[in-house]
Nucleic acid binder design. Structure first.
Lengths: 341, 341
DNA sequence: GGTTAGCACTCTTTCTGTTAGAGTGCTAAC
DNA sequence: GTTAGCACTCTAACAGAAAGAGTGCTAACC
């Protein structure tokens, strides 16, 4: 059967009424909120058709209609457009993000808080992955007589710190040596090529100086591991508790899934910028959810993702507008930061 | 009425059976799990007395007994002792905390994960507050042509970083000047005395160099604010969802409370090392909860708190043993770190 | 052929009444 | 002081009845 203009109109109205009410939408209320001059019986026939096409579901015989996963999909793909963020909200967002514009990790933290605050859903953000980044420098800062902080900096502007302890007294001279050795060897090297094996050969090449540097090397290894990976930050899981659409059990499953950052990261990576509805993700825990994902870029190259997770019933026009603006802002700030180098 | 030894025994057994079962305890099951050779009728009389004394509650006439808040209090104060942590668990804890022993913030993160993992409740930790600390140094690290990271270090071993941006090109020489000026003025100064007003006079004293340093000063101010405060980290709120004792409403209230870190911090500070049961905290949101708090020290001086929050029904002997060991470990590690200076 | 009014039908929700079971409190005997 | 026995009370679970909502179908209409 074909999706006539009137069917589209009715489907869109059903979805939108369902978004605001959360209740199955009946033919009568739909009629009242629709600017078509037809009776509820006609609407009823159309809704029955839409049900037959798999776009609307009926919880039970005497209930109204609810969009099915395919119904949501059609709505997302062809019946709505993202709602631009108002000027006032843009100002608010900018003022919140600007102070941490020069620190990617803190910036993504800010985005996370922003998204949870403005959507009352769960926000997921990933920091730029060092996969395509190189070391832009290594710094050492003495923090006490025998401890120092190693700071690994990447071309993406991320910084990864580790405090390490030596069993001899440190001095500016010693740290200068550390600095020279580490920067000579590492600056410009792709982060993904700082492997344990590489560090071992690096250490071996140092001769007996290696003994002095072993704890610094360990710190470097950990910092490099952190830089390679991507911090997955999940914020505002609490908000999902208050979504009536989740059962105790589905919530539990969902929370357990969100506790496995690698899997969440992999999903965001392979999904790209789009909305994953329920089973589309292939993840059982996400069966009843909607997951809106936007990727941000650095110099036009994909660098990470920000996302909002909630029940399938969400205000996507608004959500996608917000997500899009946030991703653009992050892309702009991080690209500027990279261009500073 | 007096709390005879037999009454104590019965109260303790009631509490302990309730801890494991979560169900009201009847006279019959209690009798079976008690090594007293008396009949259920006798136990019934005693339980009735304990009810009259306000130590046991009865959800309804035909239900067993449940410890009241006062009952829990008596149990905690005089009927139980914390359970020492097993050697195996001690090893596990140590191995988890040791790698971050030289970074207080990461250490407390580790404790937080530890407590949620081992108790399946919510953990609350506070990082050492800079209230009694002084600046042990300020460092600058260039991170790109026009950005640098300021690192504020305190005598407690905490580190606070801020990346700032200048509208002129930085150089090692410029940063050396920054380093000298900031360290001359700040090293040894109590963190709490780095006020906005002080920074203003500091800036004024610099003459026109002030223009060059304004963004560094702003970064310092933010870092100092962070150092003064205490990061309150709440972890594993999710776990509370699966405690049947909480209603939707009480959970909501609880979550909202946990979203206000200053209040949580103030409560932990004034409570000291002990268990707060329900209304004892004076916080309505905590009415149905138990909150076990332990303070850790640096050189014998109170520095912060770690705590576990859950329903009133918790396995306190185990919990208190764990909390005590964790607090001792943190105290030891942080004191060692401070002694390094 | 598309549209509409009317109505029977179905299913959920809510309320009420009933029953089985659990645990108590009381009494009288030990 | 302790115990056995028993009546009492309250909950949880189930079943049936009534109310309400929304549909699907049919027959008439434009």
């Amino acid at each position: 059967m074909e999706l006539t203009p009137r069917k589209k109109k009715i489907l869109a109205a059903t979805v939108e009424l369902y978004i605001v009410s959360g209740e199955p939408v009946g033919s009568k209320v739909l009629c009242e909120n629709l600017d078509i001059r037809v009776s509820s019986a006609t609407v009823r026939n159309e809704m029955s058709d839409l049900g037959g096409m798999g776009l609307l579901n009926q919880p039970h015989t005497s209930a109204g209609r609810v969009p099915s996963e395919r119904g949501w999909r059609v709505y997302l793909d062809s019946l709505m457009t993202p709602e631009p963020v108002s000027a006032q909200e843009r100002r608010f967002i900018d003022s919140l993000l600007l102070p941490s514009a020069y620190d990617p990790q803190k910036l993504l933290d800010g985005v996370s808080r922003l998204l949870t605050g403005m959507t009352h859903m769960t926000a997921i953000t990933t920091t730029p992955s060092g996969n395509n980044a190189a070391v832009s420098g290594v710094q050492f800062v003495q923090t006490s007589r025998r401890t120092a902080m190693l700071i690994l900096m990447t071309t993406l502007g991320t910084m990864h710190t580790r405090v390490f302890h030596c069993d001899f007294d440190l001095s500016p001279d010693v740290l200068r040596v550390f600095f020279r050795v580490f920067n000579d060897q590492l600056t410009g090297r792709p982060v993904r090529r700082i492997t344990p094996a590489y560090l071992q050969t690096l250490g071996a090449g140092m001769g007996e100086a290696m003994l002095l540097m072993s704890s610094a090397l360990r710190a470097l290894q950990e910092a490099a591991r952190e830089a390679m990976g991507s911090d997955v930050r999940v914020d505002g899981q609490m908000n999902l508790l208050f979504c009536s659409e989740f059962t105790q059990q589905s919530l539990r499953r969902l929370m357990r899934y969100l506790d496995r950052p690698q899997e969440v990261y992999a999903l965001l990576q392979r999904a790209g910028t789009r909305v994953l509805l329920g089973s589309e993700s292939g993840v059982p825990a996400l069966r009843d959810t909607g997951l809106a994902i936007a990727h941000y870029t650095v110099r036009g190259r994909d660098a990470g993702a920000i996302a909002v997770l909630g029940p399938m019933r969400m205000n996507y026009p608004r959500l996608l507008g917000l997500l899009d603006y946030a991703a653009r802002s992050v892309s702009r700030m991080l690209t500027e930061l990279m261009d500073l180098q």
